[in-house]
Design a protein around this nucleic acid. Structure first.
Lengths: 409, 409
DNA sequence: AATCTTTTGACTAGTATTAGACAAAAGATA
DNA sequence: TATCTTTTGTCTAATACTAGTCAAAAGATT
């Protein structure tokens, strides 16, 4: 079985990494953008671009940009040129999805499971699930480009390893990337769920904001920080862990971390449920709390307003330290909307310096459902279409194309 | 006066920006490093490198690295290939310096002045001072490569404009970069003094730490944040402003910002001097406080220990939010050493989660004197030897060399 | 002193890229 | 419909870059 030359210039394709990165990242939408960004001659750019288009990685959009003369054609990554497999490992459910290269879900599946089974069993279930999803892909979908995993625990992103003594027994130090990477032969990225929700919120709704903070108020409380347009992870991937910052209160309640007076123990979903139950309104989950709020239960309203002020205490400090342009509050409890946010705003505008608050926006997340899994897809795309990884992608595509060409003979 | 070809290949020089960046930033010290980093062929690299060496920008160090065979020659930026002019605008003194390209001071000068004179007068004094310094440069020093200014107020770094309503009356919105850039025709960078101290501390002492926080405890209290190896500035350059975070205390003292209970009002140099004076030990400056500490005055010791705990309250939150690998405490009051730091450590290890504290180092700055001005030089170097600016530098050098060549004829 | 090892420079033929010019394409405008 | 404007593709000669080879350089090793 001998190799034959393929239709498009394979050298040009292999050199087109930079173009692909610019297009995939949204940094360049037109041919002129590409020339300006790469400082390549029009000839070379054109050649490489047609290689990318020939390989099915890039396509022109139907719409053009008006320019006074001949309209400018817009370029984009072909959504179907490849696919991703992503999973959100929750505490009770496993959420799996296959997406295209615009992070749109092609197929998905939710499996109830027990995270206590440990990484071996869970990763086995994920592999099985991925295989099932891959079978559901529409015909013509390109090869697997990468895998993303979301976990409810701090993660050393660079290494793809769970860190920390965490709630997840048996996962500490488990080398997820190594394990899945060996099985699938594509890049594997592992990240904490709050950071992934942050990535989704940032890329999907506020892509032009370079400094923002996403605050998740769900059962627990956590945050994700975008600084200079990038996720801030810190030395060990533990950045943004605001749930256990101490808040002044008259009778500091015991937190599940063992300390007293943590933010989470005052304003987290589990704490609100606890307080409602104590007052004779049975509630166990954050969803129950919002249910009572929706029924306008006075105590729930009161507790949520107070929770807003407690969250606000910490947000004040985040604003002073990080000087964000925007704060987005998400998570189940954020469904209380302004009832929660008014307390946050009250504290922030009262306590922070005007320079930091004058153009600060504090809003509720527009997102619902499970955005961590979409964040995982966006993260994989961002990481794959990147200078250091892009050559691997192109090599795989070129290889696939050339073997296809030989098979046809 | 016609142009004549110069000794070295001018095309190669103009294309050598990437090499120069790598060498200047310390990312590549040998020829092999350069080949690996640029993926250029040895031929091209060699050609461009000799252009850089011919232009006097890069030189080989006397020492070589042992390699088993022929020793590897080390490369570095020629310190004397150019010079920088930097200034620290303090509240009572103007500190000016000329440095070489390793940020070593070649000449310096301190001028007492009143910042109340406003930006016009002050920038005029700086220009005069720079002219005087330039006359003191050793013969053979290369041209001016850039200018750096340090200011005791928040700055919009990207624009080179003072922001704020700040203590500096008349400076708000003043376009320093535009003003000085027009006069000197080189890049001008303006930055807040605490950020510059942070840059110095980071680059000079802990260059391999990607996530660190520098805390300045002087008359006031501020901080600089290094995240992913870069200074975190926030949306408006106000990040790290921790002096006015509220601290719980029984009788919250009035702060100079108008609020009660700010960190600065409890633990800043001015607050400690106030408390010592009240107790009958006259002190006005942070230096006076340290003077009393050095004499082992019991009240000073007690106040400094308490100040450490107050600073520790805020550091706890910084650690939870940013997960740094290292915290460096500087500023005049940090001369109290462990008397101050023990309080910080006590709070941090007691309140933060183990994942964030297990490998965290909390140390006193090794630096003394005015490090902001050195930070300014490092910032200018970092900014100049950067993909977006480097071509300007090379053009200026090439132009200068070619005019020199024509004059010789 | 002879040998080894690795760095470094230089040569070649072949390949990739560039600048600049020309023409075709395609919607806007008159 | 004819003209205008800007985008896009293609051509060519000149230039830049590459891989691969050979040889010289310079300290380490024997």
């Amino acid at each position: 079985m001998k190799r034959t030359p393929v239709a498009w210039d394979s050298t040009a394709l292999l050199n087109a990494g930079e173009l692909l990165t610019l297009i995939a990242r949204g940094n360049a939408k037109t041919r002129s953008d590409l020339i300006e960004a790469t400082r390549l001659s029009r000839m070379t750019m054109s050649q490489r671009l047609s290689a990318l288009m020939g390989a099915g990685l890039v396509e022109e959009t139907p719409q053009t940009l008006p320019s006074g003369g001949r309209p400018t054609r817009q370029l984009r990554l072909s959504p179907a040129a490849g696919h991703l497999l992503v999973a959100n490992i929750g505490e009770t459910h496993l959420h799996l999805a296959a997406t295209d290269l615009t992070a749109s879900v092609l197929a998905e599946r939710t499996i109830p499971f027990d995270i206590g089974n440990g990484p071996d069993v869970v990763l086995g279930m994920i592999s099985e699930g991925f295989t099932a999803l891959a079978a559901l892909l529409p015909p013509g979908t390109g090869p697997l480009f990468g895998i993303g995993l979301s976990l409810p625990t701090p993660v050393d992103f660079a290494a793809g390893v769970v860190v920390g003594p965490s709630v997840l027994y048996g996962w500490d130090g488990f080398e997820i990337r190594t394990r899945l990477g060996a099985r699938y032969g594509v890049p594997v990225y592992v990240e904490n769920d709050v950071n992934l929700m942050t990535i989704f919120e940032h890329r999907h709704n506020y892509a032009d904001v370079d400094d923002m903070i996403f605050i998740k108020v769900g059962t627990g409380i956590g945050s994700g920080i975008v600084s200079n347009g990038r996720i801030l992870r810190g030395a060990k991937g533990a950045a943004g862990d605001i749930g256990h910052i101490g808040i002044k209160s008259k009778h500091p309640p015991l937190c599940r971390c063992g300390k007293f007076g943590c933010l989470e123990a005052l304003a987290g979903g589990w704490a609100l449920a606890r307080d409602l139950t104590t007052a004779g309104l049975p509630a166990t989950t954050a969803r129950d709390v919002i249910e009572l709020f929706n029924r306008q239960t006075p105590l729930a309203l009161m507790l949520l307003r107070q929770a807003g002020r407690n969250v606000g205490e910490v947000v004040c400090e985040l604003v002073s330290v990080l000087n964000p342009a925007m704060i987005v509050v998400g998570g189940t409890i954020s469904q209380a909307g302004d009832t929660l946010l008014d307390g946050v705003r009250e504290l922030v505008y009262q306590r922070c310096l005007p320079l930091a608050t004058s153009d600060l926006k504090i809003v509720v997340s527009k997102a619902h459902e499970d955005t961590a899994i979409l964040g995982a897809a966006l993260l994989v795309l961002d990481s794959i279409f990147d200078m250091s990884e892009i050559d691997g992608v192109l090599n795989r595509v070129a290889l696939e194309a050339s073997t296809l060409a030989t098979q046809e003979i």
